[in-house]
Amino acid sequence: MAKGRIEFDYGKCKCCLLCTKFCPTNILVLDTTKINEKGYNLIRVTEAEKCIGCAFCAMMCPDSVITVYRLEGSKV
């Protein structure tokens, strides 16, 4: 089971891609098949089980789009 899980507030995302660049496990990718109401493409999580809940993506997100959950007791 994945150590961490992230949730997006997609309405606020401006698709700057900083989260994809700072994810240490490289599981965030651009999803060009979907857009939000602002017209920006969305970010998709591939291989969700690899998420370690480090919150780097959320920390670098300028628009506070990402909420990060981590399994209690697990460390990054």
């Binding site: 606020k12 909420t67 399994l71 209690e72």
Partner: peptide, 19 residues
């Protein structure tokens, strides 16, 4: 059990940033 390790700060409103 999951716990939240990072979420939007309460010091910010719900408005979308204009940047």
């Amino acid at each position: 059990m999951e716990k939240i390790v990072y979420q939007k700060s309460k010091g910010l409103t719900d408005a979308t940033l204009s940047y």
